[in-house]
Each structure stands twice: as C-alpha cells, then as structure tokens.
Amino acid sequence: MGILDSLSTPVIIAPMAGGPSTPAMVTAAAEAGSLGFLAGGTSSVTQFRTELAQVSGRFGVNLFRPQEQKPTPSDVDEVAGLLTQAFRGYGLGDPSVPTVDLSNGWEEKFRLAVAARPAVISCTFGIFTPDEFATLHQAGIQAWVTVTNEADAHAAERAGADVLVVQGPEAGGHRSTWSLTEEPDTTPLEELVRAVVDKVRVPVVAAGGVTTRADVRRILDLGADAVACGSAFLLADEAGTSAANRELLLSATDRGLDTICSRGFSGRYARGVATRFVKENDSLPPVYPYLNPMISPLRAAAGATRNWDYAYCLVGAGIDNINQGSVKRILSTMNPSV
C-alpha cells in the first residue's frame, strides 16, 4: 500500500516555510491520519536539525533546490534604491545588501533529512538529481516533486518522481517554477490537474486555493489522489504563524484585502495578502532571495506602528475561508468522507 492510500484523509498539510510549519503541526497531522511536512527550505541547518528531532509519527520534509541563477547586482541595487525613501522615513538609514546563500543549505539538509527517514522528501524550485533520486529510493523514502506546468510534470515523472505535487496559481507561498526568471504558468488548478492526471502514471497531489470540503471534493473528482493544503492551516493552534499575520488574516476581508501573485513579496513570484507594497511592485526584478532580508527592518518598523503596507503574509486564494482551531478539527472539516 502506498503512502497516499494509507492515509485516513485525502487532505495533506503542505509545507509553509518561514514559520507556519512546526513540528507540533506535523505531529498533529500524523496523529490525525494525515501527512504533514516540515518546511526546511528557508530554515537554518541548525533549526532544521532541531525540528527533525522534535517530530513524531509519519511525516514529510520539503527542501528548496539550490538556486543556479544569481540576481544581477544592478537589479539588487535598484531594489535597494526603491526602499531608501521608506527606510529613511522610519529613521532606518539606507537599506543594506545582505549576504545570501543561494544553495539554501541543500546538501547538509538533504543529508539530515535522509538520515531522519521521513516517509517523503519533496522538492521545490526544481528537481532531484539522478543520484538524489537513487539515494531516496534506496532509503525507502518517496521522492515528490512540485510542478507548475505539464512539461515539468512529464520531466519529473521521467526522472523518477514517485508523486507529483501539481501546484496551481491559486496556491499561497512561492510558485515552484524551476528557474528564478521563469514566468509562472497561469493555468487554473482545475485545468492543470485535468491535463496532468490523464497523461502521467504516478499519483498526483493537487495544491492551490483548496480551503473547504467542497474544494477538496471537486479536485478529487478531477482525478487527483489527494490535495495539499497550506493556507487552510495558517490559523491552526499548532501553526507557527506570527501574531501579526494572524491578525492580518483575520481582518483581511474586513479591510478589503485579497491575495495577489507578485514578486513584491520576496523577489520571486509568490501569492499572499495584497498589501500596498506588493501591489505596486508586482513586476519587481527577480532578486530572490535578497529582498526579504533587505526589507525586514522596514517591515518590522512599519508593523510596530500597525502600518500593514509592507507586511509579508503568504496565503492562497480563499482567504475568507480559513478556519481556526486544532489541526485535527480543521482536517475533519475538510475531509469529504466525514
């Protein structure tokens, strides 16, 4: 029996880098018969090692592939210049260009993840190498690959992916394009799932704006084997979502805020709450991962005055359907079999 067949619910808790995914959430998912993912993409190696030791039960791990393209210095300088006036307005001086790790700590995190023997290791922003696929399969670990278009789905299947995570444009967080400068596919999730499930032989997990039981049932009816939901769990008791982002999510509808896919969050296309900054800078140069550490002092200073213009809150479509409560309760509200 495969992993997906052995779950008591077709709802998987997707990885949410930057804090929302916690060992407590992943453990709670396992206890409820689901599968949760530690989000190791942006964490330090030390933090990742610590979180691996805190998880119990069956779980998955998500990692970000090393970034082969380096943003051009002129683009990074352009963004720094764009931020200068706002920085000075908060008495922060001029923004500084940070030192970044384009490898995302991949080699050490991959080694630690394999040693921890999770049920799954999934890959974002690219695909495992042949040697990495072999390592995972020899260790009895499934290799899942996140894809955003048909071509990548076929490439991942040919390379040895055990499961395809088909991510539509409605998904919160970063689009899992395989290069920094690639313009993401805008095919809606339902159309993308239809196109992929008919042409591949491996299971498909669909992701993108799935927040209700009706959403889950509709996507499964299209042929997906399961759905991966992240945004639906941002307000879960076990989530590491910051207090500021919890407040923003709870008040977004009243504030008239929706979600947007923009480079203004991080310098790479991502979907989140449509604040003034991300709306005005959706065509920002591809400067990931420089933007987040560069703008973080401004986000903190503005947030302290309850100015949400620069807030960083990644979330998918269906923001008005996000529920609170325990992971177990939210899973039960989404399970089409209940």
Rank of each mutant, 00 (worst) to 15 (best):
P15N: 10
A17M: 06
G18T: 07
G18C: 13
P20D: 09
S21A: 15
S21G: 12
T22V: 04
P23Y: 08
A24H: 11
V26G: 04
T27Y: 11
A28G: 11
A30D: 08
A30F: 07
E31D: 14
A32E: 00
A32W: 00
S34R: 01
F37K: 01
G40K: 00
G40Q: 01
G41N: 00
G41E: 02
T42N: 01
T42E: 00
S44E: 04
S44K: 04
V45C: 04
R49S: 12
R49C: 01
T50W: 06
E51Y: 07
A53E: 14
V55G: 02
V55H: 04
S56F: 05
S56W: 08
R58F: 04
F59P: 04
G60M: 08
G60H: 08
N62W: 04
L63N: 04
F64H: 00
F64E: 01
R65K: 15
R65D: 04
P66W: 07
E68I: 08
E68Q: 13
K70T: 15
P71T: 13
P71C: 12
P71A: 11
T72L: 11
S74H: 13
D75Q: 05
D77I: 07
D77M: 08
E78G: 13
V79M: 05
G81S: 15
L82E: 09
T84V: 05
A86N: 09
F87Y: 14
F87D: 10
R88C: 09
R88G: 06
Y90P: 13
G91S: 09
G93Q: 07
D94I: 01
D101K: 00
L102G: 05
N104I: 00
N104S: 11
A113S: 14
A113Q: 06
A116L: 03
R117P: 09
R117E: 15
R117Y: 13
P118W: 08
A119W: 10
A119N: 10
A119T: 10
A119D: 13
V120L: 10
I121N: 06
S122T: 14
C123G: 04
T124V: 09
F125K: 03
G126S: 07
